[in-house]
Design a protein around this nucleic acid. Structure first.
Lengths: 205, 205
DNA sequence: ATTGAAACGGAGAATGTCTCCGATTATATC
DNA sequence: GATATAATCGGAGACATTCTCCGTTTCAAT
């Protein structure tokens, strides 16, 4: 089922070999791994690689597919959680894990959105949609702040993923970065304009 | 005194021409602008550029110097603020502005820390130190959460800068990203590690 | 004006992306 | 099994970019 539309066996085999090599190379060298090198280690010519995957993004997108299955499983786990805030946080953690799959992944991911031609763009939009679902639920429960939007939250996750590769060098941890995202670095409450509109929850200290 | 140690007039002049060209190129094409193209538009050969600035980071670092003056001025403004939380937030905003000076700046910046050879590394460490000063003050006042660390906060700012170029494409704003950083996306309070930690918790059987 | 050293600049090596097209090979058909 | 044909392969090579080497030029001290 990896490539249903491909007729010839050699093409299907080569496609698989390329994907395997790419998976290894991206994991080792990050998303900027040399494509010709990937072709070489897959035992095919560069032309074969580029026929199967016209751009680096196409290849990357395919390689990410199995990671997406994991991510969606984690989404389902999160959906089963009782608290919407807890669920949102679990989803954000899962999203961070996905975006940190390969070194440098946030860059092509964020570029994808601008260029609609990229196969990553649809994935990108899907993730924003899912994020929005968790966010809406959490906002309805009062567990998430009203002024937060799904795109902004997604971008925050991308930004966190961008730096999470390097936390060790800086003597900190991914957990702390995520905690800052979730709760902020300040202790006070945000000036929340939509707060007074919806609810009468003016119960603060 | 842009180049005090340089003896010959032509060398000093060329250095200035290269810096001007680089400033323009980085502003227009981002930090990945072609160095040979910068040399060309400065009217010098590639060899001349690389003699003055052995790596892209060296060139970038020099170009950033005038931006640093602006940043330090903003730090002083922030220092004059009455509230330490307010000051910290102002500093984080200023930091975001600095890191967003050129498209793609966060990448070399974050790479600099790993590789101690980069001239950006010292800038990087300086910024972490300054961030730490604002943070400590805010924590002493109770305006910032205790578990936040200076490196983590700096990395958060870098992550935010990474995505701030793209906020428009995603239909959101830099302000919202910064607000999420400051106050979090959740409404609740963070688990505070200063209290006794309950561990070995078997959540499900 | 002479001269030694500093600086210049461009050819080119190394690396990486991506394309073109003649050679190869799988598969349907007989 | 042999043949035909169309899909697929693969690598030479065009192009871009980084960075170096070294013969030539230019400055400035005398």
């Amino acid at each position: 089922m990896p490539s249903p539309a491909i007729k010839r066996a050699d093409a299907r085999r080569n496609r698989g070999l390329i994907l395997d090599a790419a998976k290894t190379a991206f994991a080792r060298d990050g998303v900027d791994a040399s494509l010709d090198e990937i072709a070489r280690s897959a035992g095919v010519g560069p032309g074969t690689l580029y026929r199967h995957f016209p751009t680096r993004e196409h290849l990357l997108c395919e390689v990410l597919h199995e990671r997406q299955a994991v991510l969606l499983a984690r989404r389902d786990e999160a959906l089963a959680m009782p608290g919407a805030g807890e669920a949102l946080r679990a989803w954000m953690t899962a999203l961070g894990g996905y975006l940190g799959a390969f070194n440098g992944l946030p860059q092509p991911f964020i570029d994808a959105f601008e260029a609609q031609t990229s196969p990553l763009a649809v994935t990108c939009r899907t993730l924003i949609t899912i994020t929005g679902e968790f966010l809406s639920r959490a906002q309805a429960e009062g567990a998430a702040r009203q002024s937060v939007s799904a795109p902004a939250l997604f971008l925050s996750a991308v930004g966190a993923a961008f730096v999470e590769d390097k936390v060790a060098d800086y003597g900190t941890t991914p957990e702390l970065i995520e905690e800052i995202q979730a709760f902020g670095y300040l202790t006070g409450k945000a000036p929340d304009p939509s707060r007074s509109i919806h609810k009468a929850g003016a119960s603060h200290d």
